[in-house]
Amino acid sequence: MQVGDRIVFDRYEWRVLDMQSSMALIITEKIVEQRAYHNVYKDTTWKDCEIRRYLNSEFYDRFEDANKSRIIQASVINPDNPWYGTKAGEDVQDNIFLLSLDEVCRYFGDSTEKLYNRGNNRYWKKNDENNSKRMAVFGNMYFWWWLRSPGRHNRLAAYVHGTDGCVGVNGNNITNSNGGIRPALWLKL
């Protein structure tokens, strides 16, 4: 197995994003469903959002027992939004999670320079050569998907645009139930 490979694990196809000793960070190749980030429009961080609860309970419980034993509970670091300074909340332990702004910029090409050196830009640069690497399909069309990081305030969550792969650092309304989910996890090899 190598970074960039596509593998089948349980019922989904996954992309390998990182390899460390005897484990691999994987993300679903496609958007697996649509859900709101949170069920109430109020300041919310990853630690307390509905989508985190769902991924680590109902979604996780659908895995076969043999496959659950290969999912490593990970320390999920939650950096603040680097453009707006929005607090991301406490780091947590999760079996399944969404990528952060930093991770989506690092693992899909390397656009971390654009993330941490905003300059005078109000929105993500459309000329980022890595945008197309972040695009994902839901059904038969490209669609936007959630990240776990906050947007410009804590009633917005960061996301990836569907048709151009731009990173939505400013965020989308956390109660928007059209947000795509691309779960990620650390897999024991």
Rank of each mutant, 00 (worst) to 15 (best):
D48M: 07
K126G: 15
S75M: 11
V167E: 03
G119P: 15
L115D: 06
K87R: 12
V16K: 02
V16A: 02
M23L: 06
R106L: 14
N173M: 07
I174L: 13
E29A: 11
N172C: 09
G180D: 04
R118I: 08
A184D: 05
N130P: 00
F9Q: 06
S177Q: 02
S177G: 03
G89C: 09
E64I: 07
R11D: 14
S100D: 04
F97R: 02
M19T: 07
V137A: 10
A36Q: 09
C49L: 11
D102M: 04
V167R: 08
Q2C: 05
W83S: 03
I96K: 04
S22T: 10
A24P: 02
T175V: 15
D10H: 11
K68P: 04
L98N: 06
T112C: 09
D128N: 14
T175W: 02
Y37V: 10
S57E: 14
N130E: 04
R182V: 08
N78P: 04
R62Y: 06
N178G: 11
R152L: 12
K126C: 12
N120R: 13
H38C: 10
V104S: 15
A66R: 12
G89F: 09
V8N: 11
E13T: 12
G180C: 10
N170L: 09
P82C: 00
L187I: 06
P82R: 00
A184Q: 06
R106V: 03
K188L: 13
R11W: 09
G89H: 07
D110P: 08
A66Y: 04
W186Q: 00
P183E: 07
L101R: 00
R106Y: 13
V92Q: 06
N172S: 09
Q34K: 15
D91F: 12
L101F: 02
I26Q: 06
I181N: 02
N173H: 09
K30N: 12
K133P: 00
L185F: 05
V32G: 07
W46D: 02
Y41A: 11
N178T: 14
A184N: 05
